[in-house]
């Protein structure tokens, strides 16, 4: 009954890129960083333009009908047997773990299962499939990693972010207290149970700052928006960034501006 062992594919020539709605609208530079890291590995990135959202907001609110309605037209966007990479642990988790449940017993069951089977969180894919090697070009900095709960528990990739960061010579990775504890985002939870969410994000941001981190990086835009938004409002000395943006910037010479910094919190 243990989770099946993950079978990574060999490094492909092409991948499908599933950007997620938060990247699309709020953190496009994180998506671009992901694309460029893939291209740096010689992989052709295919971006099916008709993609929207993975359906998770409705699903985690109990509106399965609406989740299916949104997912259904997207199931056919990835016809070839290429891996589908996602710059988010929680959206990847939605596709990998919950699509098969949602479509069980429907005509789309096998399509959903097939898609789930080749969906990968992007940092995991870069490290384990592409065997990414990074040469740090940046200034010394103290960074903490916040692995999202879905990345940690649904996707089982808690060790991936730290392993990538540790490749960077000038980056000192510090660890916050209770690294495995949730930041309190939880999608609509942050609004439905605002006070609990507020208490959780307070503890998380303070723990990151107390660890001496000048910046935290994370696999997930929801956590990023939550923790960085709190930190900014409370004026804590703590910036936040998607791990893909961070990694890509570290590969550029210090005098070269990153491709696009728009939308960064």
């Amino acid at each position: 009954m243990s989770d099946p062992i993950k079978m990574y594919p060999s490094k492909p020539q092409k991948v499908y890129f599933y950007a997620t709605c938060l990247v699309d609208l709020f953190y496009p530079e994180a998506g671009m960083a992901g694309v460029q890291l893939l291209e740096r590995e010689g992989i052709e990135v295919i971006f099916p333009e008709k993609q929207t959202c993975c359906g998770q907001p409705a699903y985690s609110s109990g509106f399965n009908d609406q989740a299916r309605e949104v997912i259904l037209p997207q199931l056919g966007l990835f016809p070839e047997d290429y891996p589908v990479v996602v710059p988010s642990g929680s959206c990847a988790g939605m596709m990998r773990k919950h699509y098969p449940e949602l479509f069980a017993g429907t005509p789309q069951q096998s399509q959903a299962e097939a898609l789930a089977g080749r969906t990968w969180e992007l940092t995991d894919f870069l490290l384990r499939v592409c065997n990414l090697r990074l040469e740090d070009q940046g200034q010394p900095v103290k960074v903490a990693m916040h692995t999202s709960c879905s990345a940690r528990r649904e996707m089982g990739i808690a060790e991936v972010g730290p392993a990538l960061l540790q490749q960077l010579d000038q980056v000192e990775l510090v660890e916050q207290a209770r690294p495995a504890e949730c930041c309190g985002f939880g999608g609509t939870f942050a609004v439905r149970h605002e006070e609990i969410s507020g208490a959780m994000v307070q503890d998380k941001a303070e723990a990151l700052a107390a660890a001496g981190a000048e910046e935290f990086v994370t696999t997930d835009c929801g956590c990023l928006m939550n923790i960085a938004g709190y930190s900014e409002k409370q004026q804590l000395p703590l910036k936040g960034e998607h791990i893909l943006s961070f990694l890509w910037k570290r590969l550029q010479a210090a005098d070269k501006a990153p491709v696009n910094a728009g939308g960064k919190v």
Binding site: F26, E29, S197, G198, V201, K233, G262
Partner: peptide, 16 residues
């Protein structure tokens, strides 16, 4: 409730 504890999310100038 979001902005009681946080700054509002910022929409990017260009979408992905």
């Amino acid at each position: 409730g979001w902005t009681r504890y946080r700054t509002p999310p910022r929409i990017a100038s260009k979408s992905f």
